[in-house]
Design a protein around this nucleic acid. Structure first.
Lengths: 149, 149
DNA sequence: GCCAGATAAATTGTGCACAACTTAATTGTG
DNA sequence: CACAATTAAGTTGTGCACAATTTATCTGGC
Protein backbone atom coordinates (compact mmCIF):
# COMPACT_ATOMS: atom_id res chain seq x y z
CA UNK A 1 0.00 0.00 0.00
CA UNK A 2 1.55 3.22 -1.18
CA UNK A 3 -0.10 5.25 1.57
CA UNK A 4 1.85 3.56 4.34
CA UNK A 5 5.16 3.67 2.52
CA UNK A 6 5.19 7.43 2.91
CA UNK A 7 4.31 7.38 6.63
CA UNK A 8 6.85 9.39 8.60
CA UNK A 9 7.43 6.66 11.17
CA UNK A 10 8.33 4.21 8.40
CA UNK A 11 11.14 6.34 7.05
CA UNK A 12 14.62 5.18 8.04
CA UNK A 13 15.85 8.55 6.81
CA UNK A 14 13.70 10.43 9.28
CA UNK A 15 14.95 8.13 12.05
CA UNK A 16 18.50 9.05 11.04
CA UNK A 17 17.77 12.76 10.85
CA UNK A 18 15.94 12.71 14.19
CA UNK A 19 18.64 10.65 15.95
CA UNK A 20 21.37 12.94 14.67
CA UNK A 21 19.61 16.02 16.03
CA UNK A 22 18.78 14.29 19.31
CA UNK A 23 22.43 13.37 19.84
CA UNK A 24 23.51 16.92 19.05
CA UNK A 25 21.05 17.98 21.75
CA UNK A 26 22.91 15.74 24.20
CA UNK A 27 26.24 17.21 23.15
CA UNK A 28 25.12 20.82 23.38
CA UNK A 29 25.08 21.34 27.17
CA UNK A 30 28.22 19.24 27.59
CA UNK A 31 30.24 21.06 24.92
CA UNK A 32 28.84 24.34 26.15
CA UNK A 33 31.02 23.92 29.24
CA UNK A 34 33.98 24.27 26.88
CA UNK A 35 32.45 26.97 24.71
CA UNK A 36 32.30 24.60 21.73
CA UNK A 37 29.66 23.65 19.18
CA UNK A 38 29.51 20.09 17.87
CA UNK A 39 31.12 20.84 14.47
CA UNK A 40 33.87 22.79 16.23
CA UNK A 41 34.45 19.79 18.50
CA UNK A 42 34.74 17.57 15.40
CA UNK A 43 37.46 19.81 13.96
CA UNK A 44 39.36 19.54 17.24
CA UNK A 45 38.98 15.73 17.22
CA UNK A 46 40.80 15.68 13.88
CA UNK A 47 43.56 18.00 15.09
CA UNK A 48 44.00 16.07 18.36
CA UNK A 49 44.84 12.91 16.42
CA UNK A 50 48.25 14.44 15.61
CA UNK A 51 48.43 17.46 17.92
CA UNK A 52 51.70 18.85 16.59
CA UNK A 53 50.82 18.67 12.93
CA UNK A 54 48.95 21.46 11.14
CA UNK A 55 46.31 20.59 8.56
CA UNK A 56 45.09 22.57 5.61
CA UNK A 57 41.45 23.60 5.40
CA UNK A 58 40.87 21.08 2.62
CA UNK A 59 42.47 18.25 4.61
CA UNK A 60 40.07 18.98 7.45
CA UNK A 61 37.27 19.15 4.90
CA UNK A 62 38.19 15.75 3.48
CA UNK A 63 38.04 14.14 6.95
CA UNK A 64 34.77 15.77 7.96
CA UNK A 65 33.26 16.10 4.48
CA UNK A 66 32.73 19.81 4.92
CA UNK A 67 33.67 22.49 2.41
CA UNK A 68 35.47 25.78 2.88
CA UNK A 69 32.14 27.58 2.97
CA UNK A 70 31.42 25.84 6.26
CA UNK A 71 34.96 25.57 7.60
CA UNK A 72 36.31 29.06 6.93
CA UNK A 73 33.99 30.89 9.33
CA UNK A 74 34.06 28.01 11.82
CA UNK A 75 37.86 28.06 11.94
CA UNK A 76 37.83 31.81 12.44
CA UNK A 77 35.63 31.29 15.49
CA UNK A 78 37.98 28.60 16.83
CA UNK A 79 40.87 31.00 16.25
CA UNK A 80 38.94 33.74 18.05
CA UNK A 81 38.52 31.35 20.99
CA UNK A 82 42.29 30.86 21.05
CA UNK A 83 42.14 27.13 20.32
CA UNK A 84 43.69 27.04 16.84
CA UNK A 85 46.10 29.17 14.82
CA UNK A 86 45.75 29.76 11.08
CA UNK A 87 48.57 30.82 8.79
CA UNK A 88 49.25 30.76 5.06
CA UNK A 89 51.53 27.95 3.97
CA UNK A 90 54.96 29.16 2.94
CA UNK A 91 55.37 26.46 0.29
CA UNK A 92 51.93 27.01 -1.25
CA UNK A 93 50.33 30.34 -0.51
CA UNK A 94 46.91 29.14 -1.55
CA UNK A 95 46.83 26.84 1.48
CA UNK A 96 45.95 27.84 5.02
CA UNK A 97 47.53 25.68 7.71
CA UNK A 98 45.44 25.12 10.83
CA UNK A 99 47.25 24.00 13.98
CA UNK A 100 46.40 23.69 17.66
CA UNK A 101 47.51 26.37 20.09
CA UNK A 102 48.82 25.37 23.52
CA UNK A 103 45.33 26.09 24.83
CA UNK A 104 43.83 23.89 22.13
CA UNK A 105 46.14 21.02 23.01
CA UNK A 106 45.36 21.43 26.71
CA UNK A 107 41.59 21.29 26.12
CA UNK A 108 41.95 17.67 25.06
CA UNK A 109 42.52 16.44 28.62
CA UNK A 110 39.41 18.19 29.87
CA UNK A 111 37.26 16.74 27.11
CA UNK A 112 38.40 13.11 27.07
CA UNK A 113 35.45 11.71 29.03
CA UNK A 114 32.86 13.31 26.73
CA UNK A 115 32.44 10.20 24.48
CA UNK A 116 31.60 8.06 27.51
CA UNK A 117 29.02 10.55 28.76
CA UNK A 118 27.40 10.60 25.32
CA UNK A 119 27.47 6.83 24.95
CA UNK A 120 25.56 6.48 28.21
CA UNK A 121 22.88 8.89 27.03
CA UNK A 122 22.13 6.70 24.01
CA UNK A 123 21.08 3.81 26.23
CA UNK A 124 22.90 1.42 23.91
CA UNK A 125 25.53 -1.09 24.98
CA UNK A 126 29.07 -0.74 23.68
CA UNK A 127 28.59 -3.64 21.26
CA UNK A 128 25.37 -2.17 19.87
CA UNK A 129 27.04 1.20 19.53
CA UNK A 130 29.93 -0.32 17.57
CA UNK A 131 27.51 -2.21 15.32
CA UNK A 132 25.48 0.95 14.72
CA UNK A 133 28.62 2.92 13.91
CA UNK A 134 29.77 0.30 11.42
CA UNK A 135 26.39 0.10 9.68
CA UNK A 136 26.22 3.88 9.37
CA UNK A 137 29.80 4.10 8.11
CA UNK A 138 28.93 1.54 5.48
CA UNK A 139 25.90 3.57 4.37
CA UNK A 140 27.96 6.76 4.19
CA UNK A 141 30.75 5.07 2.23
CA UNK A 142 28.26 3.50 -0.19
CA UNK A 143 26.72 6.88 -0.90
CA UNK A 144 30.04 8.62 -1.38
CA UNK A 145 31.35 5.87 -3.63
CA UNK A 146 28.27 6.25 -5.86
CA UNK A 147 28.73 10.00 -5.98
CA UNK A 148 32.27 9.70 -7.26
CA UNK A 149 31.24 7.60 -10.23
CA UNK B 1 44.07 4.21 25.77
CA UNK B 2 42.56 7.66 25.90
CA UNK B 3 44.19 8.74 22.66
CA UNK B 4 42.26 6.28 20.55
CA UNK B 5 38.94 6.88 22.28
CA UNK B 6 38.85 10.37 20.80
CA UNK B 7 39.74 9.28 17.27
CA UNK B 8 37.16 10.58 14.80
CA UNK B 9 36.66 7.19 13.14
CA UNK B 10 35.78 5.65 16.50
CA UNK B 11 32.93 8.02 17.19
CA UNK B 12 29.48 6.57 16.59
CA UNK B 13 28.17 10.12 16.80
CA UNK B 14 30.29 11.26 13.88
CA UNK B 15 29.08 8.24 11.89
CA UNK B 16 25.51 9.34 12.63
CA UNK B 17 26.17 12.97 11.73
CA UNK B 18 28.01 12.00 8.53
CA UNK B 19 25.36 9.47 7.45
CA UNK B 20 22.58 11.98 8.03
CA UNK B 21 24.29 14.56 5.84
CA UNK B 22 25.17 11.98 3.19
CA UNK B 23 21.54 10.90 2.95
CA UNK B 24 20.37 14.48 2.69
CA UNK B 25 22.82 14.78 -0.21
CA UNK B 26 21.01 11.89 -1.90
CA UNK B 27 17.64 13.54 -1.32
CA UNK B 28 18.71 16.97 -2.57
CA UNK B 29 18.75 16.38 -6.34
CA UNK B 30 15.65 14.17 -6.13
CA UNK B 31 13.59 16.65 -4.10
CA UNK B 32 14.94 19.47 -6.21
CA UNK B 33 12.79 18.14 -9.06
CA UNK B 34 9.80 19.08 -6.90
CA UNK B 35 11.29 22.33 -5.58
CA UNK B 36 11.46 20.92 -2.05
CA UNK B 37 14.10 20.79 0.66
CA UNK B 38 14.32 17.76 2.93
CA UNK B 39 12.68 19.41 5.97
CA UNK B 40 9.90 20.72 3.73
CA UNK B 41 9.39 17.18 2.42
CA UNK B 42 9.13 15.93 6.02
CA UNK B 43 6.36 18.44 6.76
CA UNK B 44 4.49 17.21 3.70
CA UNK B 45 4.93 13.57 4.82
CA UNK B 46 3.11 14.45 8.03
CA UNK B 47 0.30 16.26 6.23
CA UNK B 48 -0.08 13.48 3.64
CA UNK B 49 -0.86 10.99 6.40
CA UNK B 50 -4.29 12.63 6.74
CA UNK B 51 -4.54 14.84 3.67
CA UNK B 52 -7.84 16.48 4.54
CA UNK B 53 -6.97 17.37 8.10
CA UNK B 54 -5.18 20.59 9.01
CA UNK B 55 -2.54 20.56 11.73
CA UNK B 56 -1.36 23.33 13.98
CA UNK B 57 2.25 24.45 13.88
CA UNK B 58 2.88 22.86 17.27
CA UNK B 59 1.34 19.54 16.18
CA UNK B 60 3.74 19.46 13.24
CA UNK B 61 6.52 20.41 15.62
CA UNK B 62 5.66 17.54 17.96
CA UNK B 63 5.85 15.02 15.11
CA UNK B 64 9.11 16.35 13.67
CA UNK B 65 10.61 17.70 16.90
CA UNK B 66 11.05 21.14 15.43
CA UNK B 67 10.05 24.42 17.06
CA UNK B 68 8.19 27.40 15.66
CA UNK B 69 11.49 29.16 15.06
CA UNK B 70 12.24 26.55 12.40
CA UNK B 71 8.72 25.83 11.21
CA UNK B 72 7.30 29.35 10.86
CA UNK B 73 9.60 30.47 8.03
CA UNK B 74 9.59 26.98 6.46
CA UNK B 75 5.78 26.93 6.34
CA UNK B 76 5.74 30.39 4.80
CA UNK B 77 7.96 29.05 2.01
CA UNK B 78 5.67 26.05 1.49
CA UNK B 79 2.75 28.45 1.37
CA UNK B 80 4.62 30.59 -1.14
CA UNK B 81 5.11 27.47 -3.27
CA UNK B 82 1.33 26.92 -3.19
CA UNK B 83 1.57 23.55 -1.41
CA UNK B 84 0.00 24.43 1.95
CA UNK B 85 -2.46 26.99 3.28
CA UNK B 86 -2.15 28.64 6.69
CA UNK B 87 -5.00 30.24 8.58
CA UNK B 88 -5.71 31.25 12.16
CA UNK B 89 -7.92 28.82 14.04
CA UNK B 90 -11.39 30.20 14.72
CA UNK B 91 -11.74 28.35 18.01
CA UNK B 92 -8.32 29.39 19.32
CA UNK B 93 -6.82 32.39 17.67
CA UNK B 94 -3.35 31.63 18.99
CA UNK B 95 -3.22 28.58 16.73
CA UNK B 96 -2.36 28.52 13.05
CA UNK B 97 -3.86 25.64 11.08
CA UNK B 98 -1.74 24.26 8.26
CA UNK B 99 -3.49 22.26 5.56
CA UNK B 100 -2.64 20.93 2.12
CA UNK B 101 -3.77 22.77 -0.96
CA UNK B 102 -5.05 20.81 -3.96
CA UNK B 103 -1.58 21.19 -5.44
CA UNK B 104 -0.03 19.89 -2.21
CA UNK B 105 -2.29 16.83 -2.23
CA UNK B 106 -1.51 16.19 -5.89
CA UNK B 107 2.26 16.29 -5.31
CA UNK B 108 1.99 13.12 -3.25
CA UNK B 109 1.44 10.92 -6.30
CA UNK B 110 4.52 12.29 -8.01
CA UNK B 111 6.68 11.73 -4.94
CA UNK B 112 5.62 8.26 -3.86
CA UNK B 113 8.59 6.42 -5.35
CA UNK B 114 11.13 8.65 -3.60
CA UNK B 115 11.60 6.33 -0.56
CA UNK B 116 12.49 3.43 -2.86
CA UNK B 117 15.03 5.51 -4.77
CA UNK B 118 16.64 6.57 -1.49
CA UNK B 119 16.63 3.05 -0.06
CA UNK B 120 18.54 1.83 -3.09
CA UNK B 121 21.18 4.53 -2.64
CA UNK B 122 21.97 3.32 0.88
CA UNK B 123 23.10 -0.06 -0.43
CA UNK B 124 21.28 -1.72 2.47
CA UNK B 125 18.72 -4.48 2.17
CA UNK B 126 15.16 -3.84 3.31
CA UNK B 127 15.68 -5.91 6.46
CA UNK B 128 18.89 -4.05 7.37
CA UNK B 129 17.14 -0.75 6.74
CA UNK B 130 14.28 -1.69 9.05
CA UNK B 131 16.72 -2.83 11.74
CA UNK B 132 18.70 0.40 11.42
CA UNK B 133 15.53 2.47 11.63
CA UNK B 134 14.41 0.66 14.77
CA UNK B 135 17.78 1.03 16.48
CA UNK B 136 17.88 4.74 15.70
CA UNK B 137 14.29 5.24 16.85
CA UNK B 138 15.21 3.55 20.10
CA UNK B 139 18.19 5.87 20.58
CA UNK B 140 16.08 8.94 19.85
CA UNK B 141 13.32 7.83 22.21
CA UNK B 142 15.82 7.07 24.97
CA UNK B 143 17.31 10.54 24.69
CA UNK B 144 13.95 12.27 24.66
CA UNK B 145 12.69 10.27 27.62
CA UNK B 146 15.76 11.31 29.62
CA UNK B 147 15.24 14.93 28.67
CA UNK B 148 11.69 14.95 30.02
CA UNK B 149 12.77 13.82 33.46
C1' DG C 1 59.18 32.19 -19.51
C1' DC C 2 54.12 32.47 -20.64
C1' DC C 3 49.57 31.43 -19.98
C1' DA C 4 45.38 28.31 -19.89
C1' DG C 5 43.48 25.36 -16.78
C1' DA C 6 43.41 23.65 -12.20
C1' DT C 7 43.42 24.23 -7.24
C1' DA C 8 42.75 26.50 -2.38
C1' DA C 9 40.33 29.38 0.44
C1' DA C 10 37.12 32.90 1.11
C1' DT C 11 32.70 35.18 0.14
C1' DT C 12 27.75 35.53 -0.83
C1' DG C 13 23.20 33.93 -0.52
C1' DT C 14 19.60 30.54 1.01
C1' DG C 15 17.63 27.51 4.30
C1' DC C 16 17.59 25.06 8.24
C1' DA C 17 18.12 24.45 13.77
C1' DC C 18 17.80 26.33 18.06
C1' DA C 19 18.04 29.67 22.04
C1' DA C 20 16.00 33.71 23.77
C1' DC C 21 12.58 36.92 23.48
C1' DT C 22 8.05 39.19 22.00
C1' DT C 23 3.18 39.46 21.17
C1' DA C 24 -1.28 37.88 21.53
C1' DA C 25 -4.81 34.82 23.15
C1' DT C 26 -6.50 31.59 26.56
C1' DT C 27 -7.04 29.28 31.05
C1' DG C 28 -7.22 28.54 35.82
C1' DT C 29 -7.72 30.41 40.47
C1' DG C 30 -9.29 33.30 43.81
C1' DC D 1 -15.24 38.64 36.99
C1' DA D 2 -10.20 39.83 37.29
C1' DC D 3 -5.74 38.78 36.39
C1' DA D 4 -1.57 36.04 36.86
C1' DA D 5 0.29 32.19 34.68
C1' DT D 6 0.35 29.53 30.61
C1' DT D 7 0.31 28.56 25.79
C1' DA D 8 0.89 29.42 20.54
C1' DA D 9 3.20 31.44 17.00
C1' DG D 10 6.37 34.61 15.35
C1' DT D 11 10.86 37.27 15.55
C1' DT D 12 15.78 37.96 16.28
C1' DG D 13 20.38 36.45 16.46
C1' DT D 14 24.00 32.82 16.00
C1' DG D 15 26.02 28.99 13.75
C1' DC D 16 26.10 25.50 10.68
C1' DA D 17 25.59 23.28 5.59
C1' DC D 18 25.93 23.87 0.92
C1' DA D 19 25.65 25.92 -3.88
C1' DA D 20 27.71 29.31 -6.66
C1' DT D 21 30.98 32.66 -7.34
C1' DT D 22 35.38 35.24 -6.57
C1' DT D 23 40.26 35.91 -5.76
C1' DA D 24 44.74 34.36 -5.48
C1' DT D 25 48.12 30.99 -6.42
C1' DC D 26 50.12 27.18 -8.69
C1' DT D 27 51.09 23.71 -12.48
C1' DG D 28 51.78 21.76 -16.91
C1' DG D 29 52.30 22.28 -21.86
C1' DC D 30 54.23 24.89 -25.19
Amino acid sequence: MVTDDLALRRQACFALYAASRALTDVYRPILDEFGLTYPQYLVLLVLWERPDEARSVSELGAELRLDSGTLSPLLKRLEGAGLVARRRSVRDERRVEVGLTEQGRALRERVCDVPLRIAQATGLGLDELVALRDTLTRVTDTIHRQKEQ
